[in-house]
Design a protein around this nucleic acid. Structure first.
Lengths: 211, 211
DNA sequence: CCTGGTACCTACTCGTGAGTAAGACTACTG
DNA sequence: CAGTAGTCTTACTCACGAGTAGGTACCAGG
């Protein structure tokens, strides 16, 4: 990129989108610290002062990226899940939506997960916030199941474990892209709904209405 | 630290231990990038050139930390687990050992997990390596269960999910230290062995010989 | 008391990357 | 064809942190 001279004049909104896309790309490849504003501006096809003029400091830019991608993902999942269904079906559709999103937005996922841990920055808020929303969502789903976990702590911790399992499996999936999203999602569904105990005995979970 | 003048003369081996301890502390608090060699040397109570003379570059130092802490953790788990037992019992003892270690070595855990993602460095090898060993271990445990997952991929992905669940739950635990290690471990055990399906119906897992 | 060797220090170099000053180019508006 | 508002640039400053040069204190053994 950026071998030509002056960039074409474009309206601010468009430029901002381009910059954000470039930023997500670079952050996902290098992580927050290793990514440089020079490289981002380069990939975006503009010069550094534009970056600062439009998106503020590096930390602000990163936080904005997180916010945008997190919102996209949460919306994808919210769209995919069907409320007013049995808990297991809801979980199933949620998992499908999640893995579907990750499969089609690797960069988004990387920026949200791999760079999530780089604690310290004020953007950590955005991340823990999103993760917290996801956990609460799952926890609510669990609590809503009758006879489910007694304490709030129990539901929340199980939800945290489930979310972590999803994240980890998504990470594993990046190294084994030949597997279709549905298969991976189904595996996690079986793990958390049936448990190894049942799986060992050959009992598997499947959607109520087979397709 | 480091307000006094010259440090007392100490044999190299002792100094190296001190430095490693300081490094783990600083890395766990700040992460690889944000940690500075100045601060580490400061916490260790010595000057920077000593650091370089004894432990090499920053990346070498970090890699050494990872190796040391990873070894400690894997040994703690290996010691805790009882082979020649039923798979579920093995998993149970492994989980107990894992959460026990994390509870008593927060800094070790943080350096191993939170800073794990900071990809890019040559130390990433150490981390993915250790995680790979953990996953393989669990995968072997699963495969050894009769009638278990058919394909190697399936076992490995489930193991990855389980390890991720453990990591995530450990992370959650850091924010809820009032819970005892055993309770947290038991929760994860129930999740992955029984599954939500059973938990919803009130079926819980417990060790074969009640204590 | 010299002679080495090892622990330890102060005080630098030097690259890199965040952030900025000051101005140039383009387009619309009267 | 001004004037003005917004886009875009080159070319800096400046702090911070990795790594080092070159020396000082301390403890052997001869």
């Amino acid at each position: 990129m950026r071998t030509e001279g002056r960039a074409k004049r474009l309206p601010r909104a468009v430029r901002e989108r381009q910059i954000m896309d470039a930023a997500v790309d670079v952050f996902s490849r290098l992580g927050f610290h290793a990514a440089s504003m020079d490289e981002i501006s380069d990939v975006a096809g503009i010069s550094k002062p534009m970056l600062y003029a439009y998106l503020g400091s590096k930390e602000e830019l990163f936080a904005t990226c997180i916010r945008r991608e997190a919102t996209r993902m949460m919306e994808a999942i919210a769209t995919g899940v069907e409320p007013d269904q049995e808990p297991d079906v809801q979980l199933w559709s949620g998992l499908r939506a999640f893995f579907g999103f990750v499969g089609e937005n690797r960069a988004s996922w990387l920026v949200l997960h791999r760079q999530a841990s780089t604690q310290g920055g004020p953007f950590a808020v955005e991340l823990t916030d999103m993760r917290g929303r996801a956990v609460s969502l799952v926890a609510a789903l669990l609590t809503q199941s009758t006879k489910a976990p007694a304490t709030k702590l129990e539901a929340e911790s199980l939800a945290a474990a489930l979310v972590g399992a999803g994240e980890s499996l998504a990470e594993w999936w990046l190294d084994h892209p030949e597997e279709p999203a549905g298969v991976v999602a189904a595996r996690l569904m079986n793990l958390v709904w049936m448990g190894f105990g049942d799986l060992v005995d050959g009992n598997v979970w499947h959607p109520p209405s087979r397709r």
